[in-house]
Structures are given as structure tokens and as C-alpha cells.
Design a protein around this nucleic acid. Structure first.
Lengths: 229, 229
DNA sequence: CCAAAAGTGTTTGTAATACACCCATGG
DNA sequence: CCATGGGTGTATTACAAACACTTTTGG
């Protein structure tokens, strides 16, 4: 299969690492694992793995995410390729980082136990191995960029969500409080949400109406470059 | 040196490809080469090369750009990692693409001849090998994003430039005409240009004043996120 | 009846856009 | 004196930001 004509060039180990974001209704979190092998065994790390000859880095990232979460069809995007010669203390490894947005409610605790994984609020991240902190920092920035012009926030929410939940999410992503009235107006004016005749009654006496995101309506919009915030 | 503990994982050829942008005062161009080896020998291609075990992809990109242009300290930024299994017809090669902005006037024609390189206006790009057209397309988008919030345009101009030249550049980057008065006002209000007492007299009878970009003034600005256009 | 969160409009300031004429010069 | 491109100001519009009270309901 690999009838490689490029003799005499170095071959390098290629890995992918996944920054997995989740939102619990109040706080934005990242899923980290206790690394199970040397070097740095037992230390907190992003979920990662090596890329095989028969798969693209995208495919490897999907595979690795599935191992940790059991989830498919997850929103995921390439972040950056990290390639410093000594980024990995055990050898020359280039890592392509991906960030993923998942609905934390769908995440099964079983898998969490299997992999010694834990959700950490973004402001309480422990020390991470190698250059994983830099990866996470870059992922936060990219998520902010992305969320300000594309409807990625909905990937982090359950199908039905309330406006206060949505606002909490955007506040968590941007790390700043937003004005309730301005937020509501702007998001509703986009015309991409459908209001349901049903209320969420857990978090308040009055109850907040549920909404669903309408992908169709969004795709009929000014493709590429709507302002979300 | 490579005391690699990760046995039994695939090692893969890693390349970098460079999208090199240049501006001649009127048109935005990309530097392409006639590929000198098989496969696809003789076809138009981005300048590229393989990453060795002893260098990062950044370092490889700098090295490759130097080979083609003889220039150092060039503005360059990682674009994306392209990793489809069959993107290269001759074997499994992952490519990390970089885009570079150079002052076309400093570019020596000698090197152009040596490498069978040519500048192509962005709207007259010939067919390229592999996924290089996709790389170039993505680079154009990224340059637009970047140029709308960071002072990268100056990388493409000579040290002394006129406001009409600067406007031409932004029009070329964004592929749209801009209003002269609005453009001038906005760019001067940023306070990052110094006007010289000297005029460029080639392109008009009246002559246009030269300006220089003042990096210091910019760095005293609202770090990250000034609107340029 | 009260505590707690949901819902709802208006005003003000700021930035983006549209637009047209005079100036300086070389030939 | 005229053709060419350089330089300049204002009025309008749209968007962002600030801001406070009423509604609902479970306890």
C-alpha cells in the first residue's frame, strides 16, 4: 500500500490530542485523564493517541474521542499542530490538537471511571503534562472566536435549553457577564431558535421557556459571518 | 538522541508547504514553483519540503522559505495540518502548511530562476498538485481574517509606502473596493503610521506622501483585537 | 406574601457608510 | 491648460451599550 517514493527522509511519530469541552449549565469544563503509561504516568493530561498510517488525523481524533466518550458525530475542529523537538520528553512526537464540544449530559460516567477521567472547570485546571496547557489555552481562544461568529454554542447544550442557560454558556465561554436584555434580543433577532410551549422548572419558580436550535433557519442565513455576540 | 519509548507505533513522513504571498503595489500574488521531482514533476506546486527529526515544523518552514527566497525574519504563520491518507499520490505524507508575507521588492530574481518559480496573481492560479489549491484557498481566508485585526499588511509593503498603496493592498486582500476617505480616516486614526516629508512621484503627477509603520505605537495599543478594516 | 429568577423597551453613544469637490503637478 | 491621481469633511444610519421594573410561582 505505502509504495513510498520518498526514501531517505525522516519518519516521525504523529499524535493527536483532544481538548474536550463540556458545559453543565453553569460552568464550562474540560475533560482530562490520568495518563496511564510512561512517561508522566499518573499525571493529568489531555486525551490523546497516535495516528496510524491508515488514517488521517481527523479520523484519529474521532477514534480517540470515541474511546473516551463512546460518542460519535461530535463537533470537532483542528486547532494547531505542535511540533517542538522536545515537547514530549520520551521522543520526537508531533501532535495535532483538536478541540471538541460535547453535551455533558450525554456523557456516561462509566467511561469516566474506566479512563480515570474528570471534568475540570476551566479556572481550576491542574498542572498538565508536556505542552497540554498551551493547547488548552489556545483552544479557549479559538472557541471564543468561533462562538462569536458561528452557532457552535448549541453543541454544548442539550437539545432543549432555556435562554438563561444559553446566556450562562456564552458568559462562560467569554468569561464575562452579559446583559440579559441585550443578549436575549440579539439571539432572538437572529431567528434561529424555536420557542417551545414547555418550561424548565428546576432552576426557578417561574420557570423558563425551552428553545431548540433550528439548523435549517441558520443555513438560510448570510452564510459565514453572523455576529453571535 | 531519540531514545523513543513509544515502540510499535507508525512513523509518518511529515512535510511543510509554504503559501508565499507578495504584493507588487497593485496585485496580490503567490509564489509557485515547478516541481523538480517525481511524482508530479514539472507541475505547479507550493514550495515545500520534509521535516527532519531535529527540527520543528516552524523551523522547517523557515528553512524552506530561505531556500526559495534567501530571506530571513519573514512573517510566517501556521495555517493547518493536511493529513488525508491519499493526499500525496506517492505515499503517506502529512503536510503542515504555513503562509508567509513578503515584500516582493526584496525578492531576488536569481532565486526565481534557480527554482523555476513564478509569481501568480491570485485570480490566475494554475492547476496545482495534490491538495495545494485547498491550502492556498484556506490561506487567503486566513490572511483576510488576520489582516482585519492585526497589522500584517505592512509585511507585504516596502518600508516606505503611500496611503493609496496601502489601500490597494487591502483591496487586493479582501477582493473588494474600499472607500478612499473612510479608509484613510480609519487607518490614520489608529495612530500607527508616521508621515514622511517625502513623496512618491512615479504613479501620479501630484505625488503621494510616504508613510512608515510605527511598531512601537501599535504595541502601545489595545493589544489583540484592533479593527483594521 | 415573599424570595428568586424570568421576561421585557427605550435611550444614548459610537462606529460604519455613503457621498463630491478641490488640489498639485508634469507634460 | 488639462489630465491624472491625491487629498479632504459631513450627514445619515445602524449597531452596541446602559439601564429598572413587572411577572410568575412554590414555599
Amino acid at each position: 500500500m505505502d509504495i513510498n517514493k520518498y526514501k531517505s527522509h525522516d519518519r516521525i511519530l504523529v499524535a493527536v490530542d483532544c481538548i474536550i469541552f463540556g458545559f453543565d449549565g453553569h460552568t464550562l469544563k474540560a475533560l482530562l485523564i490520568k495518563r496511564g503509561f510512561e512517561p508522566e504516568k499518573g499525571n493529568w493530561s489531555l486525551m490523546g493517541g497516535f495516528v496510524s498510517k491508515e488514517e488521517s488525523t481527523d479520523e484519529a481524533a474521532i477514534r480517540i474521542l470515541y474511546q473516551l466518550t463512546g460518542m460519535m458525530n461530535i463537533y470537532m475542529e483542528q486547532l494547531f499542530c505542535f511540533s517542538d523537538v522536545s515537547r514530549d520528553s520520551a521522543g520526537r512526537v508531533i501532535s495535532v490538537a483538536y478541540y471538541a464540544l460535547i453535551n455533558i449530559a450525554q456523557y456516561t460516567d462509566q467511561l469516566q471511571a474506566d479512563h480515570e477521567a474528570r471534568w475540570f472547570p476551566l479556572d481550576q485546571i491542574p498542572q498538565l503534562i508536556f505542552d497540554h496547557e498551551r493547547m488548552l489555552g489556545m483552544a479557549k481562544e479559538r472557541l471564543q472566536q468561533k462562538a462569536s461568529s458561528h452557532p457552535v454554542g448549541f453543541e454544548l447544550l442539550p437539545e432543549k435549553f432555556t435562554l438563561p442557560q444559553l446566556q450562562n454558556l456564552y458568559e462562560a465561554i467569554f468569561g464575562m457577564p452579559l446583559d440579559k436584555r441585550n443578549f436575549t434580543r440579539k439571539i432572538l433577532e437572529l431567528g434561529i431558535l424555536n420557542k417551545l410551549n414547555e418550561k424548565e422548572k428546576q432552576s426557578s419558580r417561574k420557570g423558563a421557556f425551552f428553545y431548540v436550535y433550528d439548523k435549517e433557519k441558520y443555513s438560510r442565513l448570510h452564510h459565514e459571518g453572523v455576529k453571535f455576540i
